[in-house]
């Protein structure tokens, strides 16, 4: 598995455009800035929806209006995050594929997606008349709290990718090297 991921990353790294994007100061930094600034659209909307469910923000705006109206801008923001995120991976594939934080982040993204799917199912199943209350029913509050935790951890992992604490080139402990996917005797990128 780690071998396969490594070979794939090396293959991506061989693309001319990958090198070009990595080496372009302005293009790379603008893609990276767009990725970070789009947090204000994607997570900005998500946090407001979650905090509304918990009764911590926008309490006299109907919860269903918040969830429904902020959904579209949130999805637009997440689309930007995905496109710029893929581009960032494309620019630096091998180091990113072998980043412990990047791997943890992908697992957390899957968990957050699963949680979002469950949340929307519960939202549709919620009994009428709840949306004017300051707090949502307990099942929705649980989903909102989990969403906040997952996304906080995702942002933390994303920020940590930039640091080289556990890079393969820093020869981490064997367990971490396996989790990060380091290959014995690999070329250093």
């Amino acid at each position: 598995m780690n071998r396969w991921i490594y070979d794939f990353a090396v293959w991506v790294d061989g693309h001319d455009w990958s090198t070009a994007l990595h080496e372009s100061y302005y293009l790379y930094n603008w893609v990276e800035s767009t990725h970070v600034l789009a947090l204000m659209i994607s997570l900005g909307m998500l946090f407001l929806i979650d905090l509304r469910m918990l009764g911590l923000a926008l309490t006299d705006v109907p919860a269903s209006a918040v969830a429904r109206r902020l959904n579209l801008p949130m999805l637009v923001g997440f689309s930007v995050m995905i496109v710029t995120g893929v581009l960032l991976f494309y620019a630096i594939p091998v180091r990113t594929a072998q980043s412990l934080w990047f791997r943890v982040k992908l697992v957390l993204l899957l968990l957050a997606a699963l949680n979002a799917w469950l949340f929307h199912r519960r939202l549709r199943a919620a009994p009428a008349g709840w949306e004017l209350a300051a707090r949502a029913p307990a099942r929705l509050r649980l989903g909102a709290a989990l969403s906040l935790v997952f996304w906080a951890l995702i942002v933390i992992c994303g920020r940590f990718i930039a640091y080289d604490w556990f890079d393969c080139s820093a020869a981490p402990a064997p367990l971490i090297a396996t989790l990060a996917g380091c290959i014995d005797g690999q070329a250093q990128f």
Partner: peptide
């Protein structure tokens, strides 16, 4: 403590997201 600095950076980003969300709405 590099890790503390990085965690505060993440907190800065998370609160920026919330600030941006409030401004956008």
């Amino acid at each position: 403590w590099g890790a503390v600095f990085a965690l505060v950076q993440a907190l800065h980003l998370l609160s920026m997201a919330l600030l941006g969300g409030a401004v956008l709405v």
